[in-house]
């Protein structure tokens, strides 16, 4: 594969990570805790879409190789993820009388409950949406880019969702309230913003985007009850790289982490080609920069960013 090919894959994977990281960052800044159940919210979205798609079927026509029914399933995935998250906030997080560390620990329990319920219902095996895998787009293959129409659909939908969020944050009343609350919750409350309601909307938006990310992740790879939890740390890496609490930072961080993740094979080719001296260093780098360690590289970047620039590459939180 050529560089262009890796970049194209990176773009697709980045779209999924961005969808996940925006929600995590929003919840981190407005509900003020690291939500370890965010990955499993993605799983909830993916499986809801699976059930919906199984129920409604294709519904006739298709766009970008995806039947209409799939888009309905996508909406269902987003809706169910949002409803589940709001229900959890109302039933579990809101009545709790603990600090943000307590909320963090609780969210781990919530993550386990989501995953366990899905695993009891669907088993722990991998499944797929019942959609024919497509061949790569012929016109792009000569350039070494092997993306399918499905991948184009993923990127396109992600761009639409992220664009919608941008409009919401910048030009609507709710967006201004959310930004005010992320900045200073007490001040926002004193100014007459109904912070509880804003918090609920934050959950709706964050979990909805996560649900969409989960559906696309299921389309990109496959579905399994662990899919979200496995991605959670990568998403955390993206959020931290972008700066916690900054939505645009989360987008940038998600984009970078997704790219780095998919470009790892390319980097390992580069390392092999470079004349690195001494030999043991070359051997070490070659063994460490390989596809098996794609996630590990993201985690190491995350720790490095935490140490060097705890506010992330975007600097001070500018939601």
């Amino acid at each position: 594969m050529t560089v262009l090919g890796y970049l194209a894959n990176g773009l697709v994977f980045s779209s999924i990570i961005v969808l996940g990281s925006i929600g995590l960052s929003l919840v981190y800044s407005i509900a003020d805790f690291a939500n370890f159940a965010h990955g499993d919210t993605m799983t909830v979205g993916a499986y809801s879409a699976l059930v919906t798609f199984g129920a409604v079927g294709g519904l006739g026509g298709a766009v970008l190789g995806l039947p209409y029914g799939f888009f309905l399933a996508l909406v269902a995935g987003i809706a169910v993820a949002a409803v589940v998250a709001v229900g959890t906030e109302k039933l579990v997080y809101e009545p709790l009388d603990v600090d943000s560390i307590g909320l963090l620990i609780t969210s781990i329990g919530i993550a386990f409950i989501y995953r366990a319920v899905i695993q009891i219902r669907f088993g722990s095996d991998f499944t797929r949406f019942g959609i024919q895998p497509l061949r790569p787009i012929e016109a792009l293959v000569p350039y070494g880019v092997r993306v399918t129409l499905h991948d184009v659909a993923i990127v396109g939908s992600a761009v639409v969702l992220v664009g919608g969020l941008h409009v919401l944050l910048q030009y609507t009343d709710l967006g201004r309230k959310m930004r005010a609350m992320a900045d200073n919750p007490d001040l926002a409350r004193v100014s007459g913003i109904r912070t509880k309601r804003v918090k609920l909307w934050t959950w709706v938006i964050g979990a909805g985007l996560a649900g969409a990310g989960g559906v696309f992740l299921g389309l990109f790879n496959q579905l399994s009850p662990r899919m979200g939890f496995n991605l959670l740390l990568v998403i955390f890496a993206a959020v931290i790289l972008g700066g916690i609490g900054s939505v645009y930072g989360a987008m940038a961080g998600g984009f970078l982490i997704g790219m780095i993740n998919q470009l790892t094979p390319f980097f390992s080719n580069v390392v092999e080609a470079l004349p690195i001296w001494p030999g043991w260093l070359a051997a070490l780098l070659e063994s460490l920069i390989s596809i098996e360690y794609a996630n590990a590289i993201a985690f190491v970047i995350m720790v490095a960013v935490l140490l060097v620039r705890p506010n992330g590459i975007a600097g001070e939180g500018a939601t």
């Binding site: 579990v92 603990v98 620990i105 609780t106 919530i110 409950i113 995953r115 695993q119 009891i120």
Partner: peptide
């Protein structure tokens, strides 16, 4: 999964 569910419920119940 049952074990996972129980662990999750115990965490939430203790924190609550």
């Amino acid at each position: 999964p049952l074990r996972l569910l129980l662990i999750g419920v115990v965490i939430v119940a203790v924190m609550r």
